[in-house]
Amino acid sequence: MVLRGVAKPASYLILIAASLFFLMPVYVMVITSLKPLDEITLDQMWTWPSAIDVSSYSEAFTKLAPNLMNSFYLVVPATLLSALLGAMSGYVLSKWRFKGSEVLFTLMLFGMFIPYQSILIPLIQFLREIGLYNSIPGLIFVHVVYGIPITTLMFRNFYVNIPDEMIESAKIDGANFLGIFRHIMVPLSLSGFVVVAIWQFTNIWNEFLFAVTITTAEQQPVMVALQNLSGSQIVQWNVQMAGALLAALPTLLVYILLGKYFVRGLLAGSVKG
């Protein structure tokens, strides 16, 4: 009991210290992005800006706006299409299993753990061949394809929880494959769809390797453009931090508004069926 009396405040102390560690980069980003350039001296890094200056945001925004738009054009269709494919294959692999479907599922899952470097050279050759290299549709295609394993896994796990009896009685009532999908599976897995969509949105928005190898200049999504900001000769830290915040904002907003679903997606990624 005495020990407990000490343990509680100590727990809070450690948790608060840990919170400071996790929030510190946000503090640095925010104050640095609000400073005028002449206050971005090395020894003033932690001090609050003397006056709030949003010019770094307007500068970062002018530089990143086209790329932010590219990211939106990429993320929305890629998320929807990969969710659709995942719902379709997840439905079959959970409710219409056949001999060998479990092995097939495991083989599909392996696709989400491979280092994408191991498919990148043929992928780029292929995209050049079909004329989608250096284009947003090309990137959409890539994210749809390599999103299949995770979206299939997530949908399959949602569908498994829908009782087989419901499917059976629907069959007796005359519902066919498509009818069961449309009238039972889809309506019952709407929250599952939200989890998958948030997960894909976040991952595709944040992705870098495909983006930097498949697109150049005008076609690049925002993460590549952000990385390029630091490649310039004089590093304007205030502009860079404003840019980092702008680039992170969409996924941060999604997390703040729908964090519960995001964490469910996070846990789904550790496999287990």
Binding site: F22, F208, M223, T251, Y255, G259
Partner: peptide, 28 residues
């Protein structure tokens, strides 16, 4: 507390890289 510890998961590694490069800059 949970939300504070989870939120970096929603960020891109690129954003993390850019910010920590500044935080761990040896001269500042």
């Amino acid at each position: 507390f949970r939300n504070i510890f989870f939120f970096p998961m929603a960020l891109s590694f690129v954003v993390t890289g850019v910010v920590w490069q500044w935080i761990l800059n040896p001269s500042t």
